[in-house]
Amino acid sequence: KLPPGWEKRMSRSSGRVYYFNHITNASQWERPSGNSSSG
Rank of each mutant, 00 (worst) to 15 (best):
S27F: 15
L2Y: 03
E30K: 06
S33L: 12
R9K: 08
G34Y: 14
G15I: 02
G34W: 15
S33K: 10
N35D: 13
Y18G: 00
S38G: 11
P3K: 02
P4T: 08
P32A: 01
S14M: 07
G39I: 11
Y19M: 00
S11P: 02
M10Y: 15
A26P: 00
R31D: 08
R9Q: 03
W6G: 00
N21G: 01
S37N: 12
Y18C: 08
Q28L: 03
S36M: 12
G15M: 05
G39R: 08
G34H: 13
Y18A: 00
M10G: 03
S37V: 12
G34N: 12
K8D: 02
N25R: 15
Q28N: 03
P4W: 11
Y18V: 02
N21D: 03
G15D: 04
G34S: 13
P4F: 13
P3Q: 03
P32G: 01
N21K: 02
K1A: 13
K1Q: 14
Q28W: 04
G5I: 02
V17S: 06
R31H: 12
N25K: 15
S27I: 15
F20H: 07
S11C: 15
L2H: 02
Y19G: 00
H22K: 14
A26S: 09
W6Q: 01
S14C: 13
G39D: 11
P32R: 00
S14F: 08
S36V: 13
E7Y: 06
S27A: 14
G34A: 14
T24Y: 04
N25W: 08
E7T: 10
S11N: 08
V17Y: 11
S11R: 05
W6V: 01
E30W: 09
R9H: 06
S27H: 11
G39K: 09
E7M: 07
S33G: 12
G5V: 02
H22D: 03
S27R: 15
I23Y: 11
N21E: 01
R9L: 06
P32C: 01
G39Y: 07
N21R: 01
Y18K: 01
R12M: 13
S11A: 10
G5H: 08
A26T: 14
G39N: 11
A26Y: 08
K1W: 14
P32E: 01
E7A: 06
Y18Q: 00
S27G: 05
G5A: 04
P4N: 08
I23F: 12
W29F: 08
N35G: 11
S36T: 13
S33P: 08
K1N: 13
S38Q: 10
G34K: 09
I23H: 09
A26I: 14
R31V: 10
K1S: 13
F20D: 00
R12H: 11
L2N: 01
E30M: 07
G39W: 07
N21H: 04
Y19R: 00
E7C: 12
G5T: 01
P3S: 03
Y19Q: 00
R12D: 08
N25P: 00
S33R: 09
S13N: 10
H22R: 14
P4S: 07
W29Q: 04
G15S: 05
P4Q: 07
W6K: 00
K8M: 15
K1L: 13
R16A: 06
S36N: 11
G5R: 01
S37Q: 12
S33N: 12
V17P: 08
Y19L: 00
E7V: 13
S38Y: 08
P3A: 04
R31I: 10
R9E: 01
K1H: 13
P3M: 03
M10K: 13
L2W: 03
A26R: 14
R12S: 11
Y18T: 01
P32K: 01
R12Q: 12
Q28D: 02
S36H: 10
S37P: 12
K8T: 09
W29I: 06
P3E: 04
Q28S: 08
W29V: 05
Y18I: 03
G15R: 07
S14P: 04
R12V: 13
M10R: 15
K8G: 05
Y19K: 00
R16V: 05
F20I: 05
N21P: 00
F20R: 03
P3R: 02
K8L: 14
Y19H: 00
P4A: 10
F20N: 01
Y19I: 00
P3H: 02
R9G: 02
R12T: 11
I23R: 06
W29Y: 10
A26M: 14
W6A: 00
L2S: 02
E7P: 01
G15A: 05
S37E: 11
R16F: 06
S13H: 13
S38K: 09
R9I: 06
S11M: 11
G39P: 12
P4K: 07
F20G: 00
S14A: 07
S33T: 15
P32F: 02
K8H: 05
E7W: 05
E7L: 07
Q28K: 04
G5M: 04
R31G: 03
G15E: 04
G15N: 08
E30I: 06
E30G: 06
E30D: 09
Y18H: 01
T24P: 01
Y19T: 00
R9N: 01
P3F: 02
R16D: 03
N35V: 12
R12L: 14
N21L: 03
Y19D: 00
R12G: 09
S37Y: 08
G5S: 03
G34V: 13
P4V: 08
T24K: 03
S36E: 14
R16G: 03
S11Y: 09
S27L: 15
S14E: 07
P32Y: 01
H22Q: 09
A26V: 15
Q28F: 04
K8E: 11
G34P: 11
G15W: 03
W29G: 02
R12C: 15
E30P: 04
Q28Y: 04
S38V: 12
S11E: 12
G34I: 13
P3N: 02
I23D: 08
L2T: 03
S36I: 11
P4R: 07
R12A: 14
H22G: 05
V17W: 13
P32M: 01
K1R: 12
F20K: 03
R12W: 08
R31Y: 13
P4L: 08
N21M: 02
G34E: 14
W29A: 05
M10E: 08
S36A: 13
S37D: 12
R16P: 01
S36P: 12
E30F: 06
F20Y: 15
S36G: 13
K8F: 06
F20Q: 01
G34M: 14
R16E: 05
V17Q: 05
W6D: 01
Y19F: 07
S11F: 09
S38M: 12
T24A: 03
S37A: 13
G5Y: 06
E7K: 05
Q28A: 04
S13T: 13
R9A: 04
S37T: 11
I23M: 08
E7G: 04
S37K: 09
N25V: 03
G39H: 10
F20E: 00
G5D: 04
S36F: 10
N35H: 11
H22M: 10
S14R: 07
N25F: 10
H22C: 15
L2V: 04
K8W: 07
V17K: 03
R12N: 09
K8A: 14
R16N: 04
R9F: 05
H22S: 12
R16Q: 07
K1P: 15
V17R: 04
V17T: 09
F20C: 06
N25Y: 09
S27T: 13
P32T: 01
L2A: 02
R31F: 14
I23L: 11
S14N: 10
S13I: 14
S36K: 10
T24H: 03
L2P: 15
R16W: 05
R31M: 10
N35I: 13
S13M: 09
S27Q: 08
L2I: 05
S38P: 12
P4H: 10
K8Q: 13
H22F: 14
W29S: 05
E7H: 10
E30L: 06
R9W: 03
S27Y: 15
E7Q: 08
S38I: 12
K8N: 01
A26H: 14
W6F: 01
V17H: 07
W6S: 00
S13G: 11
S11Q: 12
I23W: 08
P3G: 05
